[in-house]
Nucleic acid binder design. Structure first.
Lengths: 126, 126
DNA sequence: GGTCCATATTCGACAAACGTAATATGTTTG
DNA sequence: CAAACATATTACGTTTGTCGAATATGGACC
């Protein structure tokens, strides 16, 4: 591993370090990553979708159940699920007439976990 | 602590558990949290702002430096910084003509860390 | 096959986010 | 104080996101 081009950090809590040696190619790579990441974040930065993910974190739910939990209309919930499906964050499973959704992506689980700790935990971190 | 109404989890990686006992008041609380969280996520789910935060993670930067790092126009960068400032995620410090920005919030640091690991780490988690 | 129920999709209206250009504020220097 | 520089703000046109209403699909039951 080339230390001179190691944007990974050491002893910094996992955060990146961009020193003066950060070159154009690295910035380019970074932009690609940022785009991917921001798409992902956009997908989850919506009150309804966030609540859906949070509810799914405790197990699969049918669309109707989600409608009730969110006090939202059928179309809206279905649309948000559609979006989450396209992003690959949730997964449908048919059982009779109902369709049950569950989390697919480790990413969503991880982020939800962090967001939950930051905004919903009883031992809220400063 | 009332176990019957404990939405906090045990042995689940810190994720919430909403059982059948989840009542209206809890859902209400959850909605408030979701709104706060989604505001925060919206603030960081923008390619430019994400890159700004990521760059600031390695130390304070002037606006001009950020313009160059992002290959973006002055006004755009300033606007995004303004947004981040309003959300309380970054902090300005004047030094002569230049203004240097740095991260203020633990939240942004924490999330950036996670996002970085998910999307930019060499040892990208699946 | 027809009807009911659960879910998905499409479409149109409306609001919010974004970028650019122009302008304003504030600081240094001569 | 004037000029130059760094940053902030405003105004405006364009795009994108979101919701509601209406419609479509698809399984279950008679």
């Amino acid at each position: 591993m080339d230390a001179a081009h190691d944007t990974q950090t050491r002893s910094n809590g996992g955060l990146p370090v961009f020193g003066s040696d950060t070159c154009a190619a690295e910035l380019d790579e970074m932009m690609k990553n940022a785009q991917e990441a921001s798409n992902f974040l956009k997908a989850i930065s919506h009150e309804g979708r966030l609540m859906i993910l949070c509810h799914l974190a405790s197990g699969e739910k049918s669309v109707t159940e989600l409608e009730e939990l969110l006090s939202a209309r059928q179309a809206a919930v279905s649309q948000q699920l559609s979006r989450l499906r396209l992003e690959g964050l949730v997964q449908p499973r048919r059982d009779g007439k109902a369709i049950y959704y569950s989390l697919t992506d480790d990413r969503s689980t991880k982020i939800i976990e962090v967001v939950y700790n930051l905004f919903c935990g009883k031992n809220r971190q400063t």
